[in-house]
């Protein structure tokens, strides 16, 4: 049981580390956000799940934290992306079309 928990901890922390690596390697704000948000969200949930295997009696509060992270993390990253867009930062090697400031 605790081995499964430990493995989940390692997986979660690995995703977090990969997300941070993406944060450093990616070339602009939007791509950094993509790397940071997705990895940190899944990483945190995996860590919380792993802790749930170590301490099954904490499931209720771990569930609240997981739900909270799942709900607020994308909202936070969208607000940052929106702010960056409004400030005038555009994705650099841009493909596709988008409308100019409406």
């Amino acid at each position: 049981m605790s081995i499964i928990g430990d493995i989940l901890l390692v997986i979660g922390c690995a995703f977090i580390a990969l997300g941070s690596l993406g944060l450093v390697r990616m070339p602009d704000v939007y791509n950094r956000l993509q790397a940071g948000t997705k990895a940190a969200t899944l990483g945190t949930i995996a860590v919380l799940l792993g802790i749930g295997f170590h301490h099954p009696d904490w499931w209720a509060k771990l569930l609240v934290i997981a739900g909270f992270v799942l709900f607020t993390n994308p909202v936070g990253s969208s607000t940052i992306a929106r702010a960056a867009y409004k400030v005038g930062i555009r994705p650099r090697p841009l493909a596709g079309k988008y409308e100019a400031d409406s």
Partner: peptide, 30 residues
């Protein structure tokens, strides 16, 4: 740019949340 730093701070905050939950497990204190 400033948004880059905000992204990093936001990610750090989420990592800290996970780390605090890990502390709860290590210290066995909910």
């Amino acid at each position: 740019t400033t948004p880059d730093r905000v992204v990093a701070a936001d990610t750090l905050a989420v990592i800290t949340t996970a780390g605090l939950a890990g502390l709860a497990s290590v210290f066995d204190n909910p």
